[in-house]
Write a protein that binds this DNA or RNA. Structure first.
Lengths: 141, 141
DNA sequence: TTACGTGCAAACCCTTTGCCTTGTC
DNA sequence: GACAAGGCAAAGGGTTTGCACGTAA
């Protein structure tokens, strides 16, 4: 994202936006490191560590609203729990971006999933997120 | 999970565990409501609202260690950001349960995914998580 | 010059913990 | 009657916000 011009869309909606060292450097961190990072991690990697952590938070939400950054974890307000697979059937979740409700969805295949979601639940999928948890090479040894 | 007997495994490892109203009621909430809930949401749904929120937190981690409950969202320490798809290629993540590192993984099919993860990244998948984000029937209207 | 953005510090919210009491086994 | 578990309140850690100053445009 070297072209700040591309951000104009949102700039028009608001009055203007400014290209400042904190914002520039936060963006630099993301172009240098391709992995999801927390505010603290981004801050740790800034060229100029004098930049305030609060400014990093503000830059993150700034770029998120612009669509340049996305939050990997869209669940708000704390960790959520549910009964584990051992005590109920394996399933996934349909998370509504409108109202935030989470409903269960049984089954496990991707293409079929999207079809069934549309037909059975009338759920319109805008994007999906697939995560694997396990052990990397180093940790498995 | 009506049978507290099933929890004995862990009970043996530790000294013992007790069947108390707070734990019972927290579990009741999960058997009544099949959706991921935060501590606050669980608390809100307790029969007896006099039960302390801290006790709910303790019950949640208690049942998690027992394997009765699982945390839907395994990301620790705050929200993580990364460049959005518009600014880089579509990809998923491999999250190591050992060291917590997150590495990118290009591509998008489930079965093939697991094979490639094992071969290309030497990543041993223990479990996966698939999430869809979109609009439910009500919100799409 | 204007008003957006930053730094700083306090405020907030969710979660955890210490300590004493309660109540299960 | 022991000791695990709960209630209460304070502490902790991440995130947000108010305010005055600095600075990009």
């Amino acid at each position: 994202v070297k072209d700040w011009q591309a951000l104009t869309q949102w700039a028009l909606a608001r009055r203007a936006f400014r290209r400042t060292p904190p914002r520039q450097q936060v963006l630099d961190v993301f172009t240098r490191h391709h992995l999801p990072m927390t505010a603290a991690e981004v801050h740790r990697r800034l060229k100029n560590r004098r930049i305030n952590l609060a400014s990093v938070y503000r830059a993150l939400s700034f770029f998120s609203r612009l669509g340049v950054l996305t939050s990997v974890d869209h669940v708000r307000e704390g960790r959520r729990y549910e009964l584990s697979d051992a005590h109920r059937s394996h399933h996934h979740h349909l998370i509504c971006q409108g109202c935030g409700t989470i409903q269960d969805f049984e089954g496990c295949f991707l293409g079929e999933f999207e079809r069934r979601a549309r037909k059975e639940k009338r759920f319109r999928i805008l994007r999906h997120e697939l995560r694997f948890f396990g052990l990397c090479q180093a940790c498995a040894a």
